[in-house]
Design a protein around this nucleic acid. Sequence first.
DNA 1: GAAAAAGATTGAACGAGTTCATTTTTTAAG
DNA 2: CTTAAAAAATGAACTCGTTCAATCTTTTTC
Lengths: 208, 208
Amino acid sequence: MAGLRAKQKADRTRRILEAATTLFRREGYDSARIEDIAEMAEVSVGTLYNYYQNKGDILVATVAMEVTEVLEGGARIVANPPLNAAEALRTLIGQYYDHSLYYLSKEMWRTAMAISIQQPDTPLSRRYTELDGQLCAQVIRLVETLQARGVVQAGVDARAMGELFFNNLNMMFIEFCKVDAMPLEELKARVNAQHEPIAALISSIKIV
Amino acid sequence: MAGLRAKQKADRTRRILEAATTLFRREGYDSARIEDIAEMAEVSVGTLYNYYQNKGDILVATVAMEVTEVLEGGARIVANPPLNAAEALRTLIGQYYDHSLYYLSKEMWRTAMAISIQQPDTPLSRRYTELDGQLCAQVIRLVETLQARGVVQAGVDARAMGELFFNNLNMMFIEFCKVDAMPLEELKARVNAQHEPIAALISSIKIV
DNA sequence: GAAAAAGATTGAACGAGTTCATTTTTTAAG
DNA sequence: CTTAAAAAATGAACTCGTTCAATCTTTTTC
């Protein structure tokens, strides 16, 4: 029985995360009390704090899982994108946005984003920032790919362009989460309206 | 003695805001206790809560003042911008960034931004969002002005372009606030590196 | 297999933001 | 000027996230 301790540890980590996610979804982040999460996970409050530094860390852990999945889906699109700048962007970003509300509510996103801004030096906030960086890198890679296939002009600075697109889609997502009433489709339409003119500017074949 | 009540009210509102700003700057947002703010403002804790919904609201009120000043400075630049797209953007954004740390620390900004994301429905968060909208409108107006003066191509979608620039500069400012060690100059250089290639793309006179 | 060392768990206590029943002050009415 | 009504101020009590000294469990040592 070499790894009894390790096994228990893994089990508790999972149970806490599951309990927290369930309660965050059911009651919202603020209303879900640490005491309740601990009870549902069948550990004490103190133990919970041995596994996660604070309440926010548990949420950010969920977000990290979510973003990881989004990155996987995005990689498939970047590997073989539509050969039209505007459409390629729309496809990649659409996949980001569509996936975003699958596990997390707007309220959970708001809290997670707020935490990653306010306490940037906790390990899990750092992880969040790192994942953001990977998403940005993916958008840059899309522009590079389009460039390699002759869809986007060779002279365009792919890094600058990709960063601009990413920061824009990210900021627009924040605005989206701030307005409970805004539907996903409106977000997508607005971002597309922003990106389409730029996409036309950098496309090799000008559409009249 | 018609307006005794109104006079006292205005006085207390001001005293609370002054005390809070002083303590936030001196000790940081988290370490400044409501009790201390109340004491310095010479009101009770309960009274403080009659004037502001919560601790965050007081901070966001300070930020609102700050952004208002930035908007005024920006208006002067937009009225008479450098007649070069990249330089005009650099000038306007530089003024935003330079002013940003005059009253508020990075920590205060982080907290304020986190609050405006997490509790978007409080009156003062709404005000913050509105001011953000005004800043965005100002960047759009800059692009429009440059277009009117023939510096930027007539075909460019000024709104889309301005929104993109603004969301980018805003997101970059968030990243800047997350990293205590990053100096203002680095932020400005990085944003300029992103905007310069785009500015070249949309400029009427191509620089070789 | 017993004892010591290391590692985890526990829940009561703590701290700080927030609330609300009570009291005080101001205004309006007679 | 007195009194009633309205508005505002007050601070003790409450909530909930977080901590930490004491206790229990697992592993290692001999």
